[in-house]
Write a protein that binds this DNA or RNA. Structure first.
Length: 516
RNA sequence: GCGAGUAUAGUUCAACGGCAGAAUGCCUGACUUCCACUCAGGGGAUACCGGUUCGAACCCGGUUACUCGCUCCA
């Protein structure tokens, strides 16, 4: 399948088979918000369960929490989200290129600086050894004028930025005659503020609300609970705290289906380590997280590491695990060495000590943090893009037919097993099949279906990724055996009714993902 | 957010400014001994709001959503 073709097919398959719907569709939808349907929520839950098991249950030194979405507003001050994600943006109407307004001004200031230095260099050449640079800088009228200009701009920019004077920022850009690099024109839109965080209010009396943010990441809920968790679970460093939860971000451009949504779900783990040991653990988690993806059967060639060049304000090393989505290699998961930035900030702003007493070193310190952070929805999209296949299979009377099949790992599949009567108009067969379904439904998610020919029923189950189909035929009525059909190989095996639960349970067991 | 394009049954596509149709899927029944069989019947759509016109799915304006470009990230 061609790549962009695949993307369209994934989206329509998700809708058609009840995995994902556009939010508020009857009202024409809500931009960049999606709802998970019956099979989608099963798959999503299975992904979360796989992550939780592998992180929390498989590590004695990792525990899980579930912190609230609402948090004290100061948390976002401390984390840097209030300041770092409030970029003033401006568009050039001719080139359609978008810039950060403050960066435009800063670039202009850089040019002035270059001019000054050129002037100095020129004079140096002219005067030779006798040149006194300090004196020249403090007396040359052209240099002085430019320094004056530079400082004025710097002060004004600082004023406009810290006081959100967007109109004046635009006026400054026009006054300086800054032109777009691409179009060369000075045809600018208004400067607009980009707010990363959604705000809401606490308190139910109008006018008395306190401003509150919906969390833009789950990590801060872990940081502010660091000591609570450490003390109540008696953990010693290194140890980790994991959390799965919703986060909210206003995106400038939110697109590409569920890849970038305004409301999304994160699976994050913050691993607290002794300062100086963070790079060792950073490498450890990079490796561990890649293995997690490979265990699911995600092809190695579709996964790669991508090291960040521009580090976020809190990190000293950062890498992405990228997946080859239908629209190219994009970030699926991030592994960040977050230093002690977050705990330190919270310690400063709250005035509470957030330190660990290390009995080995006999000293207190603020731990360093290595974070693994993966988007559930991106993982969902990865699993779906990876699994959706169209293939030619032998059909009736030797004719070939195509089938659409979701080759999800059995442990992730929304429905584990379908029970299908070979003929639907025979009460003995349907009755027997229903009885089998009613027996196995307690063990795992199963389905009963008799509304079509056996071939059609198989195809339906293929389309939602059901790994096993139990077919009840006339032989079943005689000796209580059924055929169990495997989704990917189409192989059929005859087993006794009493063995169904055991056989299926063993093949869908998540345990097999943890065996090295 | 800006620009360009798109919007008709669940899906894929038709319909001159003049009765909105097909295929497929779905539901019901019949038939069928292992990979979308066949037959009969049924339900189902012009994204939304307004304008032009005797008459609008079709022309015009606006809104919304989606796709593609420009930025950021899980």
């Amino acid at each position: 399948m061609a790549q962009d073709d695949l993307f369209k097919k994934v989206i329509s398959h998700c809708k058609e088979y009840g995995f994902i719907y556009q939010s508020s569709e009857v009202y024409d939808g809500l931009s960049a918000v999606y709802d998970y349907g019956p099979y989608g929520s099963e798959l999503k839950n299975n992904l979360k369960q796989y992550w939780w098991k592998s992180m929390v249950q498989m590590h004695e030194n990792i525990v899980g929490i579930d912190s609230a979405i609402f948090m004290h507003p100061k948390i976002w001050k401390a984390s840097g989200h209030v300041d770092a994600f409030n970029d003033p943006l401006i568009d050039n109407k001719d080139s359609k290129k978008r810039y950060r307004a403050d960066v435009l001004v800063e670039n202009f200031m850089d040019k002035i600086e270059v001019k000054i230095n050129k002037e100095v260099a020129k004079a140096k050449k002219r005067f030779g050894d006798a040149f006194d640079e300090v004196q020249f800088r403090s007396t040359n009228p052209r240099v002085l004028a430019n320094v004056e200009k530079y400082n004025t701009i710097k002060d004004r920019l600082a004023d406009y930025m810290s006081n959100s004077k967007l109109d004046e920022l635009k006026a400054l850009i026009e006054e300086l005659g800054i032109a777009c690099e691409v179009s060369g024109s000075k045809n600018w839109t208004e400067v607009r503020q980009f707010n990363l965080m959604f705000s809401t209010q606490l308190g139910n009396i109008a006018g008395e609300e306190g401003k509150l943010y919906l969390r833009p990441e789950t990590a801060q809920g872990i940081f502010v609970n660091f000591l609570n968790v450490q003390k109540s679970t008696r953990q010693k460093l290194p140890f980790g705290i994991a959390q799965i939860g919703k986060a909210f971000r206003n995106e400038i451009v939110a697109r590409q289906f569920i890849f970038r949504m305004r409301e999304f779900e994160q699976m994050e783990m913050q691993f607290f380590v002794r300062p100086g040991e963070e790079m060792k653990w950073y490498e450890y988690w990079k490796d561990a997280r890649l293995k997690w993806h490979l265990a699911l059967g995600t092809p190695e060639e579709n996964l790669r590491f991508h090291d960040h060049d521009n580090l976020a304000h809190y990190a000293n090393a950062a890498a992405d695990i990228q997946y080859n989505f239908p629209f190219g290699f994009k970030e699926l998961e991030g592994i960040h060495s977050r230093t002690d930035f977050d705990l330190n900030s919270h310690q400063e702003l709250s005035g509470r000590k957030l330190q660990y007493f290390d009995p080995e070193l006999n000293e207190n310190y603020v731990p360093f943090v290595v974070e693994t952070s993966i988007g559930v929805d991106r993982m969902f999209l990865c699993a779906m893009s990876n699994a959706l296949v169209e293939e030619v299979v032998p059909g009736t009377e030797g004719k070939e037919s195509t089938r659409v099949v979701l080759k999800l790992h059995p442990a992730l599949a929304p429905v584990k097993c379908a029970v299908l009567p070979l003929k639907r108009n025979d009460d003995n067969l349907t009755g027997k099949a229903r009885a089998i379904f009613n027996k196995i439904k307690y063990s795992f998610n199963a389905q009963y279906d008799d509304s079509g020919s056996i071939g059609k029923l198989y195809r339906r189950q293929d389309a939602i990724g059901t790994p096993y189909c139990i077919t009840v035929d006339f032989e079943t009525l005689e000796d209580d055996t059924v055929t169990i059909r495997e989704r990917d190989s189409l192989a059929q095996e005859r087993i006794h009714i009493d063995k169904i639960e055991e056989v299926v349970r063993q093949r869908i067991d998540m345990k097999q993902l943890f065996v090295e």
